[in-house]
């Protein structure tokens, strides 16, 4: 009994309760339900850009624009991370594991006065974010899901992953980031969806 109490107290006092030990219900934002599968939503044909024609660039308000080929991108230091994801169509999926390059690594301390970023993609999709929502360890350019190369249906070869916001901000088939002084609504943000998209504040639609 003493050891049980001791474990309880040590865990409580150190505050190290890990996400997977939390009750699942604490991890589901308001209005969401859990799924086991990984739904695919299509707003257009699935792009299939060959890796030898793929590149990723950072352009716009930056002192020196950046560009990587696929080979150069895969040489960058990457991280494996596990996060919950939340789609505005109300499904959430817990403990999804990805591998990707942090947006901090891509920016690499570049000089910019930009406050916003627009992600642009094969197929013409765009989404807009404040720069501070994709820096500080909050966003990645992900190239693997569940230990496998990211499938085209899920945005492969690489997608943005910004798991603390609704998943439409995690642009599939992303090819670059445009650093901007002003904010410009993207594909869904210009069709009545919320500009920020925080699932914990249930920011689904403009006006929420």
């Amino acid at each position: 009994m003493g050891s049980v109490m001791g474990r309880f107290f040590s865990r409580g006092f150190r505050g190290r309760r890990r996400p997977r030990e939390q009750a699942e219900s604490d991890r589901v934002p308001p209005g969401q339900y859990l799924v086991d599968g990984f739904p695919v939503l299509s707003a257009g044909p699935t792009p299939r850009t060959p890796l030898d024609r793929w590149d990723f660039s950072i352009v716009g308000e930056i002192d020196a624009p950046k560009r990587w080929t696929w080979g150069e991108f895969r040489e960058l230091p990457s991280e494996t991370f596990t996060r919950d994801i939340h789609c505005v169509t109300k499904w959430s999926k817990l403990d999804t594991t990805w591998e990707g390059v942090s947006v901090d690594t891509l920016l690499g301390g570049a000089e910019t006065a930009a406050g916003y970023v627009t992600a642009f993609c094969d197929g013409g999709y765009t989404t807009n974010l404040p720069l501070e929502e994709v820096t500080g360890g909050k966003a990645w350019l992900a190239f693997a899901y569940d230990g496998e190369p990211l499938e085209p249906e899920h945005g492969g070869p690489a997608r943005l992953l910004v798991p603390h916001l609704y998943l439409w901000k995690s642009a599939k088939w992303v090819r670059g980031l445009r650093l901007m002084n002003g904010d410009e609504p993207g594909f869904w943000e210009s069709l009545g969806y919320h500009n920020e998209g925080d699932p914990w504040r249930e920011q689904r639609y403009r006006g929420d």
Partner: peptide
């Protein structure tokens, strides 16, 4: 394309999004 967030009508020749319609409960 009947996406869960909206319906996108695309040009059969070039895939350009011709018409985009979302129906939701903003506000």
């Amino acid at each position: 394309y009947a996406h869960g967030m909206g319906t996108i009508v695309r040009c059969a020749s070039c895939d350009n999004a011709l018409i985009r319609i979302a129906r939701h409960n903003g506000g």
